[in-house]
Design a protein around this nucleic acid. Structure first.
Lengths: 334, 334
DNA sequence: TAGAATCGCGAGATCACTTTCAAATTAAGA
DNA sequence: TCTTAATTTGAAAGTGATCTCGCGATTCTA
């Protein structure tokens, strides 16, 4: 493989000039530039990115921590991230943490070893260690999730407002006994959705009942479990709001299996608007998150931080939207 | 940041010894090992992976080309890949090619620039360029897809047999007019599934009709389109086999919208057994691919190639399985 | 047209690590 | 005790690029 030295020799210039030609072509004479360029072509030279990364101590790579690659919710976000990253010549290193702290730590090794220039986290656990990179903090941006207290940049929707909207929709249809299937409660995001739910209830004068809240982990299976728990506990409910679509879909499956029809017996509203939401029966009423846009905004923020270390952390909030399909209907009966 | 030099100085040894202590601790005296280790601890030294990669001309990173991250079919495969990779201290660089050649080429840049040690492709396009790495070919393994003619290693199921099995299931239920929704026809995988379909038909003495075959692109939307095309063409059919679950699910949606019930009016069998297949209505009969196992086997092969350049390309074939749910039923009627 | 400023280019240092080769030390054998 | 073999260690080379510094050439200013 030819190196920069070979090119330099072939072109009759120094390696410095070759490097310059590559990095800032206009800092070099027309004539030499041409010489170098033909030398490059002739030798089939390609820049050794490893050497370059080493020298510059930067890899043009962003680590993206995904809680679960299998969750289709993340796909559009990733596409948004990638779109902007590619535009700025950054690459994405996707790390599937599988909701496991150990796995996350493994990836953070890469960070410690300076193999990535920045970290985007789609999960709620704040990557703990990597705030130093040769003394300098390494940029971190959270997407979807966020931290209330700290000064970590994030991009998300207003989950309180969104959950309120979902609940209001049900309330507006005449439902009063509305169950709530939450995600893992530890995260600010889950807390906010819960808060939005309660807020809407309160505003309509509907008392909050603890029995109507169950917890899942955002998976299809946990949605089933939540619905089963709800039914087993014998509380009355005519509607459910789930903290994400997967759990809503899981719940619907159980509901139907138990002979309750959706939406006639119970209305269900989801959260996220994943692609499959339109394909289940009945098509799911849900809150749409601007997923691609979240990805774009997140990476844009990251790029900014990368080029300007003094860039301030900010909490970017994007708009959500209630998508009404067929899984919700007016409350029937006395 | 402290470097190996600092550690060496602190421990009163040479950098070579520090390096050795890290790489092969037993090539070093107990005493010096201890000295070095405390020096490492005291200085908070972490190996600079960039320098290391540069020196060794290897990054311990495998590029995984995924046609579409959003497709949940790939998630388990990726998890399988990751499981084995991590065990051997390799990292995964996930590249979402979005079925676009340009994007694929972008990622192949990484390969040319020696930023990855190997390439796993989940798509059908054979990465063209990267067969050279400093003259040496860089390992490539395909998963799911494969090439009939060449000597590229691959891990997949027997798609002919699998499609035959799916079709036979329908045939066994008494169906004779069985439609086939294929994927992009250019790929060996699609051709094989089609062939399996036709083979089963032939074996049962059912004539193949061109009108009963339509083509999609593996997406939910294209499944809808395919079903619509089928209906519009006015051919009679009482069953459909789709080349993947997403298209099957899309087709079911259209079927129901048109007033045909599944499976009473038309039986549908999918392919892949993605998680959602159990959650649609009716739950989907489908061919299960051992996805996690495919991932594992692929990465195992990759590791082998990485450590042994003479390793022969092989076509590993794993077992598939017909999962019968509720989207298929005996053919009704005269 | 002399002196100053600017520009283009090359020599060589540098980045942090691995690895070769030979020296030095230790262990084994006679 | 001396020689030989084995083991442990260090000096230094090498990896491929970038970048600083300074020199010579060119252009500008007065």
């Amino acid at each position: 493989m030819s190196s920069i030295k070979d090119v330099a020799r072939l072109a009759g210039v120094s390696t410095a000039t070759v490097s310059r030609t590559l990095a800032e072509p206009d800092k070099v004479t027309e004539a030499t530039r041409r010489k170098v360029q033909t030398a490059i072509r002739r030798s089939g030279y390609v820049r050794n990115a490893l050497a370059r990364s080493f020298r510059m101590q930067s890899t043009q790579t962003i680590l993206v921590l995904v809680p679960d690659i299998g969750n289709p919710f993340y796909s559009l976000i990733i596409q948004g991230l990638e779109e902007i990253a590619q535009r700025h010549h950054y690459r994405l290193l996707l790390g599937d943490t599988q909701n496991s702290v150990e796995r996350e730590l493994e990836y953070l090794q890469s960070v410690m070893q300076r193999q990535v220039d920045g970290v985007v986290s789609l999960g709620h656990t704040l990557p703990p260690v990597p705030s130093i990179k040769g003394g300098k903090p390494i940029p971190l941006v959270m997407a979807c999730e966020y931290l209330h207290d700290t000064s970590v940049a994030s991009v998300s929707i207003d989950n309180i407002a969104a959950a309120t909207l979902a609940t209001q929709h049900l309330l507006g249809l005449g439902h009063r006994r509305i169950a709530f299937i939450n995600g893992p409660v530890s995260t600010p995001l889950s807390k906010d959705r819960m808060q939005g739910y309660r807020q809407a209830l309160k505003a309509s004068g509907v008392p909050y009942s603890k029995d109507l809240s169950v917890r899942g982990d955002f998976s299809l299976l946990s949605g089933e479990g939540a619905a089963r728990a709800l039914i087993a506990s014998n509380v009355q409910f005519t509607a459910i709001v789930a903290a994400n679509d997967a759990m809503a879909i899981g719940a619907i499956k159980v509901l139907r299996a138990q002979g309750r029809t959706v939406p006639d017996d119970v209305s269900v509203v989801g959260f996220d608007d994943i692609e499959f939401a339109q394909y289940v029966e009945p098509p799911l009423t849900t809150i749409r998150q601007p997923r691609r846009e979240i990805g774009r905004a997140t990476m844009t923020k990251m790029i900014k931080k990368l080029s300007d270390a003094t860039d301030q952390a900010s909490q970017i909030v994007l708009a959500h939207e209630l998508i009404i399909r067929s899984s919700t209907a007016p409350h029937k009966g006395e």
